[in-house]
Amino acid sequence: MKFAKIIFIIFALFPFYLSAETAEEQGLRIAKASYENGRGFTDMVSDQLMILIDPKGNEVTREVSGKTLENLDPNDGDKSLTYFKTPKDVEGTVMLSHTHISDDDDQWLYLPALGRVKRISSSNKSGAFMGSEVAFEDFSGTDYRKYEWKFLGEEMENNETFYKLESYPNYENSGYSKRISLIDNLNRTYKVDFYDRKGELLKTLYLEDYVLYKDKIWMANTMKVENIQNKNITIFKWLNRELDVGINKKDFEKSSILRLAD
């Protein structure tokens, strides 16, 4: 009798499972929609401010400016060129990245003190960007295909309902075991919790000041990272962001670094 009941329940549920998405499929669908929210910009220029705050409240500000070229090939990553303005001892430093979805990125660095362009390793995924709480993988790992996704349900925060997604990096050398994201009903990421390799909560990222560009592209102009373990805070602000300005794609070649260099 008991056995029959179990069979009945299983059969009763079966059609439902056939028609609905799995949690993984649903997670992937939302993550893809969220990623595509920020696509179609063609190219982009901006100035960026990075404010580093330690637990005592001491603040330092770093300034960079950058250009990004969207890769129209959906199977390859974008290219970006970053020019460092402060701190003053790194002024004139230029970094060029060609990101890839499954392979390591290609990166070159021009350092004024050395006066040479160096190809550098990009396997440093978990390393800190300029002493901040932002890791290199936080910049290069924005493509949804770099993770496995899972939909966990809906969650209320600040009187708003968010999709709650769990993701696991599928590239090597990540500093994270998993991430938990909250995404709003416009598919904009609101918050991400990062868990370290041991599974402990490491830091929380808040994406704020969303601006709608070209009537279709949502981009957050403030990123705040609170490290839970060392209590440091990094605030990243995009200023003067302009999209689709018509940058020459040759500007993103290794040889063009010297046009920016000192």
């Binding site: 390793s121 396997s123 440093n124 995924k125 978990s126 390393g127 800190a128 050398n173 500093g175 390799r197």
Partner: peptide
């Protein structure tokens, strides 16, 4: 050869 995140620190 670079060891990144030496002994779970931010050092390389």
């Amino acid at each position: 050869y670079t060891i990144y995140g030496l002994r779970e620190t931010t050092s390389d």
